[in-house]
Design a protein around this nucleic acid. Structure first.
Lengths: 194, 194
DNA sequence: TAAATTTGCTAACGAACGTTAGGTTGCTTA
DNA sequence: TAAGCAACCTAACGTTCGTTAGCAAATTTA
């Protein structure tokens, strides 16, 4: 049931794997060609430049995160529920796409302008959605945190390390991980008096 | 009251700053020289190679983390206290040395063998100390977590994103940040029945 | 003051880099 | 069967890279 990948997609996938383990700058086109079993120059039949690969990966993942977040936001419930759903959506994208997520999280700084700027704007927008959920939870008395920006960063930090150790073969499923993460983070934030 | 830096230390410091913002591979010796106001070749009067700088930064920071952790471990108390102290120690090192911490956390993979291997062993040893604290807390019934390795990774993940946004001029002091982080993470882990 | 050390320079090395030009092969479609 | 296209090749380009050699000036030490 494997999807048939176009050559361009194969290149992107192989590059993603190399970018994750060695980094964008430390991966040469000759390394990539070698991993594909062809010559470096041949890659240019399919892509315009090395950076184009990075751009495609970064913005494709940005899209995936936004789409997952949108779906989660369509559900209603308390702020806790909303936050749990947003976390679950985020973890699902991360675990379904570990390598591309790693590139998305760490290699975006090698984008040139205007891509670099656009990327940062998207990331900010994404984080703001989390911030809004937390703000509404603070207003309703559900959450008790010292600083909402601080809370968001800590949450996302906790999530974004996932790709470094998550293995699909591991004993926890993506949903279990999301539940455990939600439990750890949320109960720490919930006002215990309520 | 500024410490007088040797030329070698100046080079290390400037390099650290560049490695943080652009990454090790994307920083050339000519970039570094330019930032120092000298020629690239002149740097080699002080260091043996580009990688030597990375080695010095990585292992110096490893030392700092271990020393801080040792001091914290000397205090006694409940598992919660021990964890709080370990977190405080970790945050203190992170905040006192943001740029070097960023390099320590992200650029170590560009170390060649045997440094790469040694570094990973040290990191594992460091994480194990956290794991032991949590294990003892689970045994004593203080903590209630699904998986101890999972808990450690989530804690350290939450801490290790700090360097990306922490500014010494910010409104929170290092101690306040450590307290807030402990509160967020610990209360989420504590068994609420106790 | 002589010797040693520190700090920097210019010039250049060989290797590796991203990329382009131009051509060949083999499959697919009209 | 002819045309078009996808996929890859060899050869090479100009540039940048980390680094070395050899030398000069300034500063520190004896």
């Amino acid at each position: 049931m494997e999807a048939v990948l176009s050559r361009k997609e194969q290149i992107e996938q192989t590059a993603t794997s190399l970018f994750k383990t060695r980094g964008f700058s430390a991966t040469s086109m000759r390394d990539l060609a070698n991993a594909l079993g062809i010559e470096a120059a041949s890659i240019y039949s399919h892509i315009k430049s090395k950076e184009e690969i990075l751009q495609r990966v970064c913005f494709r993942m940005a899209n995936e995160f936004f789409e997952a977040q949108d779906k989660a936001a369509a559900l209603d419930g308390s702020a806790s529920d909303k936050l749990k759903n947003a976390i679950k959506a985020h973890v699902k994208v991360l675990t379904h796409n570990t390598e591309a997520s790693a590139v998305f999280l760490h290699e975006w700084r090698h984008l040139s302008e205007p891509f670099h700027g656009t990327f940062l704007e998207l990331r900010d927008k994404y984080e703001n959605r989390f911030r809004e959920i937390i703000r509404s939870g603070i207003e309703s008395g559900e959450f008790q945190v010292p600083d909402e920006k601080f809370a968001v960063l800590t949450i996302l930090s906790g999530l974004n390390w996932l790709h470094t150790w998550y293995k699909p073969e591991g004993k926890m499923t993506a949903d279990e991980i999301a539940d455990n993460l939600s439990a750890m983070l949320l109960n720490g934030m919930k006002n215990n008096q309520n």
